[in-house]
Every structure is written in structure tokens, then in C-alpha cells.
Design a protein around this nucleic acid. Sequence first.
RNA 1: CGGGGCGUAGCGCAGCCUGGCAGCGCACCGCGUUUGGGACGCGGGGGUCGGAGGUUCAAAUCCUCUCGCCCCGACCA
Length: 480
Amino acid sequence: MSKENKLTPRSQDFNDWYNAVVQMADLADYGPVRGTMIVKPYGWAIWENIQKALDTRFKATGVENAGFPMFIPLSFLQKEAKHIEGFAPELAIVTHGGGEELAEPLVVRPTSETIIGHAYSNWVQSYRDLPILINLWNSVVRWEMRTKLFLRTLEFYWQEGHTAHATSEEADARTRMMLDVYTDFAVNEAAVPVIPGEKSEMERFAGAVQTTTIEAMMGDGKALQAATSHNLGQNFAKAFEIQYLDENNQQQFAWTTSWGLSTRFIGAIIMTHGDDNGLVLPPNIAPIQVVVVPIYKTDDDKAALIAAANKLAQELKDAEITVKVDARENLSPGFKFNDWEMRGVPVRLELGPRDLENNAVVAARRDIPGRDGKQSLSLDGLAPNIQALLSEIQANLLAKATQFREDNTHAAASMEEFEQAVKTGFARVWWAGDTEDEIAIKEKTKATLRCFPHQQPGGNGICFYTGKPADRIAIFARAY
RNA sequence: CGGGGCGUAGCGCAGCCUGGCAGCGCACCGCGUUUGGGACGCGGGGGUCGGAGGUUCAAAUCCUCUCGCCCCGACCA
């Protein structure tokens, strides 16, 4: 083992580990402007797989994709009081264009509710025009103070869905439906267990009536908001006059929703599954599911092994598995093993002369490091076995992450118990406090109200903080 | 924006205190030997020492200003 290029152990310094993994796994790099990010091809390939998984699900619910301008008149944002109040501090504003000062400053979209509202007001006349179900794949800009690759950068890539409906009930149903989509994606594709729930008034999106969220626990016990789905009520419809004539020839305001998931989710995957050897990718999201490392001594061996590796790779490709053969010269097998582990490839196949003699190959699974994760598989009927192995890894990652979250989630009935719980993970508490209480708790413990889980135990309890009777459980945690 | 740390080859760093030829490891290029958990030998290439100004015979080194990055706070997907 070489002394150089060693990754900081995750347990030693989680933050340092994260930054190193992002760069050493070739996911992203820093841009020339503070707080900006260059997403490298391998990182982007993960994003593309996330996009594919989400886009399919969106379209299955009737959503269509569209493109909207990045420049928004500043006056648009000012039409919704809470919205501008929430976003004003983090706007990037364009004051000049074509060498001239602009009559009205343009903001670089921090999100598109306002320009969507403008368009929808033109598009909607009748109840027959509803619902409108549109999604945008784009990037947005928010001038953040402290940035971190994938988790918080000045510009980030995401999707933002925007829908308009005739009734409150429909908007509410759409808000829930999209949160369900995110939950399904997170759990079944990214193997990231999440808690779907509702945000408190304090944590709500600027301009929303209700914000729902999926919250995940990272490897250091901190919470990450992995996606949100907002019920905007009639706030934006009123600000932008999205009105329609109903069946009774009465003017009505529409009801709108918005929902988004960003490249931040890549950060969630890194911090949920990664280990001391680097990135660990769930097979369903991994750009490369299987890497084949041929091992040889002589030139004769080399030719035979590379041929065998390519043949094997083709068999796997035919079975819809994404494979790469690492035939790089002058790199030792040991180096390649470590290299692909750093990049989180779920399965590595080691193919050497001994294996070829036995008509076999050594399969090493990324989720179980070292010798324990290795087994010899016959080259006959390999594809189904690899399929099964990938499924097993997918399931194991979810099980491990879920177990970790459970182990680090504690019920708290007192401030002492609460502080202990949020030191290492989530606190589950009965809650009847208000915004001021949330602020006080944040100042004292750094923990924030992540959500009121949709899945409630039922019954009543005593609020751990105010001592008042409470009918809801809340999750508190330190958060990213 | 406040507190702390740091900018020297692609990466990681030494040199700075006490001014005097810009170095080391990894990576990179060439040749040869190697290849089942981060190979080795020999030979090479690569730097306006973050930037500007100042002090000095002489500045990576001392002084002033400035830009940027990382960590901790306030703000947040």
C-alpha cells in the first residue's frame, strides 16, 4: 500500500473525508468563482441516472418537460411578499446587458415559481385548461454564504416541477404524489432511506402554504433534506392572476404546487453509503455497475485474458448490465482495485490465468470490503449471477443505511435526552412548540425541526420542551 | 461579514523565523523489467513561489494592500 493518495478515514474527519471523496472519486471540482462547482463526467453520469429514474416516474404521472428563461424581471419576485422576503438575500442580479444599464434589473432564477406564474396566467382561461403539469430540468442560482460541493453551491442543477389545478384537493394530492415519487426513488433506486413528512412553519418554502420533505440521515448522524414538495395554495395564483372560469362561469384562482430534487442528492448518496475506501454507489444509480480487471504476466496471457474479459463484458452488456473493462497498461491490479473502490463501482471482477483455467472469475462486492466480499463464480451463466449479486448489494445498502438510522434515532422526553440524541443523530419528540421555541432550540443545540413525519404513532403526548399536550411527533436533528 | 488556518510544478508539501542558484514525494514523458490488493530501475519535462506595490545590491523569505480557498459562526436545496 502506497503512503500517498490516502483518503482521510470517515470516522476521523467526516467533512475532510467528504471533500476528498468528491475529488478523488472524480465526481466534481471547484469552479474558478467562489462557491461554484464543475461537475465532472463521472459525477454527471450519476446525475443522468438520477434524471432517468425521476423523469420516467414524472412522466408516468402525466408530467411534461419544458424550458423556461433563466432571467426573471425583479418585479416578478416582488409580487409575492413572502417569496421575495425569503429569496432577496441570495439573489444574483443582472444590471447590465449589451453594454447598457438595464431599465429593470433581471434576477438569475433562484427558482421559477414567478416566471411560471406569469406564463400560467396567460395559458389558463378555463377549467378545461387545467391541470397544467410541467417539469423543468435546469440550474438555479442562490448566492450562499458557505458552500460545499454538491450540498450547497452558488449554482446547482435540479428539476423543478410546477403544476396548476382547479381545486385545493387536487393540488394537495399532487403535492403528496410527488413526495411519494421522491420517496420511491430515494429508497428503491438510491437505497437512501428517508422520512417523508411535513415542514414546520419556520422551515416552510417562501410563499408556500405547506412544504413536505424527505429527510435522510447522513453517515455522521446529521440530517439532509433530500427533496421537497410544496403546496402553494393560491398564493402565486393570486400574485400572478392565474384565473379560470369554472363550470358555473365563475372566476376562480387556480391552486399550484412545486417540487424539486437537486444535485445535492448526489451528496446524500456519498454521505449515506461511502466508507473509508471511498465512494459506494447503489447498483441502480452507478454509471458503471461492474468493472473487469484482467490480470496477466506474459504477453500470451495478456492477449488471452483481455479477449476473455471483453467476451465476458459483452455477455453482461447483453444482460443490460453496465460494464467496463480496465485494460489500462502499466497499472498494477492492486492499484486498479483501489481505484475502482474509490469510485464506488458495486462489483469488480478479477480475471487472471488461474481463473481462466478454472473457467471462473473472482467477484468482489464493494459493500463488503476485503476478502469477505470476494467469491469465485463460474463463467458459465455468469450474467444471472451478477444480476443477483447487484440486487443483493442494492438491498444490503438500503438495509445497512436503514439500520444505521434506527440505531441513531432516539426518543427524547426531556431537554437532556434531546441534547444527547441530536449529538449523534435524530431526536423523536412530542412537539407543541411554536416558531420562537424552534429558534430557541436551534440556538441552544444547533438542531432544527426536520419534519413532522407523515407516519405518526397516533395518540397524544407531552411536548418535551413546552410541557404542553402534543398530538404530533417531530424529528429534530442537526442538518446540512 | 466576524474568528481561525492556508496559498511555492497537476496533487501533497519543505524552504520563510535568520533575504543570497526554487527543492522533495506522488503524478507526467521515454526505455527496460514487472503485473492475483496502491511495482521497480535508469533517463527526462514541467515554476512569472496567488496578485499588486514597497524596502534592499539582492525578496518565495521582510513591510503594506489585495484576491482566493478551507474550517468554525450568522444564512440556506
